[in-house]
């Protein structure tokens, strides 16, 4: 068995890491959220003014709601794309499985930024999509509504997070013993009934993990709205960024961050409880 000293020594790096890069910044953020800014300087007067502002100023609510809506749309679309893909690969792909799996994974090796700029060139006024639409005479003028809209953000985030949704679903489908699927059919259930009564319930933990990934990551995304979103698609992370940057209102930015953090932790806790109930090990 390992000695106490050994255990202590190996646990120091992770403890230091978590304390230094997670707990300390979070504490700093929490403390800041109770301070305020006056004449361009931060005042250490403890108060709930920032949280009051959040409740009373509709601007923050609107951005928060939009962010949640975008994140929810991305989650739904990623699941709608990722689940059938994972289902096909795991259950029906046969010998082509490995190759197709790699093809799904490959985009993950490409930088997030590159993929963002790719969408810019596809959706822009002189972009690939507009060029095609004009070429086939669907439109005469370039459509400017594609880029710089919540639609563009949802599209880009869905593209980026679908593999993240696909992976845990695929893993949970691979985990289902194949005799269970045979047993279901053997007992008179059609392939459709087998899907809804056996395959779907047994893959719910993976579905949940994937959906949580997509939702939480989209919720905190600020690059997609920056690259393809425009003013009509500003998300909460952009707001926080501007409060910490140009606006120099760290306390308010910290207060919004705290709200988002609590919201995210609540979602994760809820997902974890559901997953515990749905797993059958």
């Amino acid at each position: 068995m390992y000695t106490r000293t050994y255990k202590l020594v190996v646990s120091i790096p992770p403890i230091l890491w978590v304390a230094l890069f997670l707990l300390f910044p979070y504490a700093l953020m929490l403390v800041h959220s109770f301070w305020s800014v006056r004449d361009g300087a931060i005042f250490h007067n403890w108060n709930l003014g920032n949280y009051r502002t959040l409740v009373h100023n509709p601007l923050y609510w609107q951005v928060l709601l939009r962010t949640a809506r975008i994140a929810a749309s991305v989650t739904c679309l990623s699941v709608l794309l990722g689940y059938p893909l994972a289902y096909f690969l795991s259950i029906h792909a046969g010998p082509r499985k490995e190759l197709l799996y790699q093809l799904v994974i490959v985009p993950l090796w490409v930088s997030y930024l590159v993929r963002g700029y790719a969408w810019k060139t596809i959706l822009g006024s002189d972009g690939v999509l507009n060029g095609f639409l004009q070429y086939v005479h669907v439109t005469r003028e370039p459509v400017s509504a594609f880029l710089y809209s919540p639609f563009a953000v949802i599209l880009m985030l869905t593209h980026i997070y679908t593999p993240f949704v696909f992976l845990p679903i695929y893993a949970s489908l691979e985990h289902i013993p194949r005799p269970l699927i045979e047993a279901s059919q053997d007992l008179g259930a059609s392939p459709r009934a087998t899907f809804f009564r056996v395959i779907l319930p047994l893959s719910l933990p993976g579905l949940l993990a994937g959906a949580t990934f997509a939702f939480v990551l989209s919720l905190g995304d600020f690059l997609a709205p920056l690259l393809v979103g425009g003013p009509s698609a500003t998300m909460i992370a952009n707001l926080i960024q501007s409060l910490f940057g140009a606006a120099y209102d760290w306390p308010l930015g910290a207060a919004i961050s705290v709200v988002i953090l609590v919201f995210t932790l609540a979602i994760l806790a809820f997902a974890q409880r559901l997953e515990a109930r749905w797993s059958f090990e």
Binding site: P177, P179, E182, A183, S184, D186, W278, F280, E281
Partner: peptide
């Protein structure tokens, strides 16, 4: 109907 080698009972 079949009785499977590892029984294949539905775990859920």
């Amino acid at each position: 109907n079949t009785v499977f080698q590892q029984y294949a009972l539905f775990p859920h």
